[in-house]
C-alpha cells in the first residue's frame, strides 16, 4: 500500500495520541456525563413524585437538549490541538496524513462522543429510575404516584414522535446535521472562540433569513398599517405545497440543509490540510 494513503498503523497511533493527550477530557467527561444525567433525572422524578406519569416522550426532549450541549461543548472542541501555536506545530508534523488526522477528529467527535453520550444517558436514566423506585418503596410513608415510563431507546433515537410529519422529521435531522457540521468546522475556523462565535454566526444568519422574508413581504405585499404586524411576514410560505402538508419552500430549505452538511465537513478537511503555523 502507498505510504501516503490511510494506514491502519498511523490511525492507531493517532488515536493513541488523541486519548493520551486529552486523557483528562475523557476521564472527567465520561463519569461527569453519567452523573449529570443520573442526578438530573433523580431531581426530576423526586420533584414530580406526586404527579401522575413521566411520559416516554420527555426523555427524547432531554436527550436532544443534551445532544445540543454536547454539540456546543464536545463537537465544538474539535481540532483542539490547533488552538495554540505550540500544540499545532506538534500536531501538524505528527507523521500522519491530513485525512488520517481528520478521520480521528471525525470518529471521536462525530461518532464516539454521541455514542458515549447516548450510552451514559440511558445508563443515567436506568440508574436514577431504579434508585427512585427503590427509595419510593422504602423511604416515603406516603407512596409516590409518579409512574415512570420505560425508556424506549429506539423510539428516542429514531425520532419516532416526528414520523407523522415526514417533512418535520427531515427538517429536524437537517437542522441538527447543519449545527453539528458547523460546530465541527468552527473548531478549526474560530479556535477557542468557537463555542461563542459559531452559534452567534448561525443566529446572525438565521436572523438575516428572517429579516429577508420580512423585507420581501414589505416589498411584495406592502408595509402593514398595524405596527404589531410589522415583523410578521405576509407572504404565504405555506403555498404552494409540493407534497401533502409539505410547502415547497420548506422542502427546498430542507434539501439545501442536507446538501450543506457534507460541504461544511469538507471545509474542515481543507482547512486542516492548508493549516499553517
Amino acid at each position: 500500500m502507498n505510504a501516503n494513503t490511510i494506514s491502519s498503523r498511523r490511525v492507531f497511533n493517532l488515536f493513541r495520541f488523541e486519548f493520551s493527550k486529552n486523557r483528562k477530557l475523557y476521564l472527567m467527561g465520561i463519569p461527569g456525563t453519567f452523573l449529570i444525567s443520573a442526578m438530573l433525572f433523580l431531581v426530576i422524578f423526586y420533584s414530580n413524585k406526586y404527579a401522575s406519569s413521566w411520559g416516554a416522550q420527555n426523555y427524547a426532549v432531554l436527550y436532544y437538549a443534551g445532544l445540543f450541549f454536547l454539540t456546543l461543548f464536545g463537537i465544538g472542541y474539535s481540532f483542539i490541538e490547533l488552538r495554540d501555536k505550540r500544540s499545532a506545530q506538534l500536531y501538524l508534523i505528527l507523521p500522519g496524513s491530513a485525512m488520517e488526522k481528520y478521520l480521528i477528529q471525525f470518529l471521536t467527535r462525530i461518532v464516539l462522543f454521541p455514542i458515549l453520550f447516548t450510552l451514559l444517558f440511558v445508563l443515567g436514566v436506568e440508574v436514577s429510575k431504579s434508585i427512585f423506585q427503590i427509595s419510593s418503596v422504602t423511604i416515603y410513608g406516603k407512596s409516590p404516584t409518579l409512574v415512570v415510563d420505560d425508556l424506549d431507546v429506539f423510539n428516542m433515537l429514531s425520532l419516532f414522535y416526528l414520523w407523522k410529519l415526514p417533512i418535520l422529521y427531515y427538517m429536524f435531522i437537517g437542522i441538527g446535521g447543519v449545527i453539528v457540521s458547523i460546530m465541527f468546522t468552527g473548531g478549526i475556523v474560530f479556535g477557542k472562540w468557537n463555542v461563542l462565535l459559531m452559534p452567534l454566526s448561525f443566529l446572525g444568519f438565521t436572523l438575516l433569513l428572517f429579516l429577508t422574508s420580512i423585507v420581501l413581504s414589505w416589498i411584495v405585499i406592502g408595509i402593514p398599517e398595524d405596527s404589531s404586524e410589522l415583523f410578521i411576514s405576509q407572504i404565504r410560505f405555506q403555498q404552494p405545497e409540493i407534497f401533502t402538508d409539505t410547502p415547497l419552500i420548506v422542502f427546498v430549505v430542507t434539501v439545501l440543509m442536507w446538501l450543506a452538511i457534507p460541504q461544511f465537513f469538507l471545509v474542515a478537511y481543507f482547512k486542516l490540510k492548508e493549516y499553517e503555523v
Binding site: 505510504a3 501516503n4 493520551s20 493527550k21 505550540r86 506538534l90 501538524l92 508534523i93 505528527l94 496524513s97
Partner: peptide, 26 residues
C-alpha cells in the same frame, strides 16, 4: 505534508508543546 515525509523529518521547536501529564517513558 505527506506521512512519508513527516516520518523522515523531526522538527525541534524552540518552545515545543508537550503533554505534561505524560512521563518520559509514556
Amino acid at each position: 505534508r505527506k506521512p512519508s515525509f513527516l516520518a523522515e523529518v523531526f522538527f525541534l521547536a524552540d518552545d515545543i508543546a508537550y503533554p505534561g501529564n505524560m512521563s518520559i517513558g509514556a
